[in-house]
Design a protein around this nucleic acid. Structure first.
Lengths: 325, 325
DNA sequence: CTGAAAGCGCTTACAG
DNA sequence: CTGAAAGCGCTTACAG
């Protein structure tokens, strides 16, 4: 494997010159550049990126931290993140941290050691003492420290969804969702629900607990056993929505006749059939992903970025399939 | 940030000694080791892994190449791969190559340049001239060159599925599947189907084309318009199975009354409801993933590995939910 | 614009 | 068992 040294010799120039041509930043005369380029071609020189990373202290690698990659929302998010990073010459490391919380800390360590150039968090526990804002990190839907984050307008679209339930005649509406351990935009969904209930003088029935992906079933069961006369539910995520469907099928509760469901997300509701029976807020996953990358890359370059970026989600009703802001 | 040099000075030993302690391979007297360890602690020394990678020419990074990560099978596969790699101190880079075929070649380039230590292929086009077998790579379900691969016993479980259709009284059974561009274990499914049809003197109706993820719908439509009297289908993957369900719902074809469906996979069939109406072959995704990692890591270490590793899939009937080899 | 040199932080023969 | 030294392949001031 030839090195920069061989190229320099072959082209009859200095080491530095080859490096300059390779990096293309500084000025090199057209003539010299040609000589170097030819030498590179003739020797089939391939730059050793391990050496470059070492010298420059940057790896061209970004990490994505999700609870589990095996979940439609996160997988889709990861897909676009990878695509966007790839376009910018970066690779993507994915870490599913739900299995072990220490994996998040481990990744933060890697960030500090420059093993990865940045991190996109779509999850996280509690980093109060981490001063993460000093590093290139961006968060999705969760805000902490002074870390920039991207989110969809959780509150507004949740209001739309809840108002829709009311307008459909529901009078006993529950909120079902998972709780995050830190302040999260996801909580806006519950806030919106409560606001709408209050506005209409309806009872607030909230089932919202800290729960792991895969462990939602008991919550659903409990909700139904505690409140047998629900006629509407606003659900904070597809996983739970699917569980509600299963439960209702089992118990013979007709959706949407006897129970109306509005769900945040909608990616995971696969079958056209089911999707026709509920209303949902569709998150702009692709835009969220690309925006997160965009912001992270800017931070890596040392540019200023906004602390909060809000993208529009859209509310889709099951009857009209009309779209609203 | 302190370096190995600082540690050496602080401990009053040579550079090499510190390195030896760090790597823990070679023998160091207990006394010296203690001194070094203390110095490391006192200086809060963190090893620069970029420098280590550079010197050792190994990155502790493995790449996973899938068509798209946003697909239940691949996402699940990726989840376990990452988990297993993490346990072994490796990170996982994921690349969805369907969007651009060049991404696969780019990754192979990275492998050659040691930017990644190994690759797990769960897809790929045509690498006839790549001599991939010289590098640490393992493939899933596809075999090419002399590359080791892991797979489930496609043929046997497909036979079970097809025989089941026949035993249920189906006489007009179709095979629906996607074609891969290179020799693939997936093709065993079609082979098994044909063998069973022949054994029973039934007509072979095969719809098998090269198709991208997301572009399967037309195939399904065509199959049904060309053969209106099907009473059984053996499907090579969940995506198509779901499309069949949608089609049948739309056209009022009752599953399983009028049409029986057996599907390879089953991960993606979410709703308990649907899952009860078909039979399916369940791939041992977790074992496949971990095995693939296991083999790859051995190859990276230069150990010998078997060319072919077959794991058991299991056949699940919709009525009994019984399991068979 | 360009060359020679120092140095990034490690590892690895080589002596001892 | 351990130290001094060379070197991995680059980049980056520093002169010129």
């Amino acid at each position: 494997m030839s090195s920069i040294k061989d190229v320099a010799k072959h082209a009859g120039v200095g080491l530095g010159t080859v490096s300059r041509v390779l990096n293309g930043e500084e000025k090199v005369s057209e003539e010299t550049r040609e000589k170097v380029l030819r030498a590179i071609r003739e020797l089939d020189y391939k730059r050793n990126s391990l050496a470059v990373s070492f010298r420059k202290k940057e790896n061209k690698i970004v990490a994505l931290l999700v609870p589990v990659i095996d979940h439609p929302f996160f997988a889709k998010f990861a897909y676009y993140v990878e695509d966007e990073l790839d376009k910018n010459g970066y690779s993507l490391i994915i870490s599913s941290s739900q299995s072990r919380q220490s994996k998040e800390y481990a990744m933060i360590e890697k960030l500090k050691k420059k093993d990865v150039d940045g991190i996109i968090f779509v999850t996280h526990y509690d980093y109060r003492n981490e001063e993460l804002s000093k590093y290139p990190v961006v968060s999705v839907d969760r805000h902490f420290d002074n870390v920039p984050f991207v989110t969809s307008n959780n509150y507004d679209s949740s209001v739309l969804a809840c108002e829709w339930l009311v307008s459909e005649g529901c009078r006993k509406i529950a909120y079902l969702g998972g709780k995050t351990l830190v302040e999260s935009e996801v909580m806006e969904r519950e806030r919106a629900y409560r606001a709408v209930m209050q506005r209409h003088g309806l009872e607030e029935i909230v089932k919202c607990e800290v729960v792991k992906h895969g462990g939602e079933q008991p919550m659903v069961e409990e909700l139904f056993s505690e409140h047998q006369d629900l006629d509407g539910i606003f659900v904070s995520g597809d996983t739970m929505t699917n569980l509600i469907f299963e439960h209702c099928e089992k118990c013979g509760i007709d959706i949407p006749e006897k129970l109306k469901v509005a769900s945040y997300d909608g990616v995971q509701i696969k079958t056209g059939d089911l999707k026709d029976k509920i209303a949902y807020v569709e998150q702009p996953i692709e835009q969220l992903s690309r925006k997160a990358v965009d912001i992270l890359l800017k931070k890596i370059k040392g540019e200023d970025v906004p602390l909060k970026t809000v993208l529009d989600a859209k509310f889709v009703r099951y009857d009209a399939k009309g779209e609203q802001a």
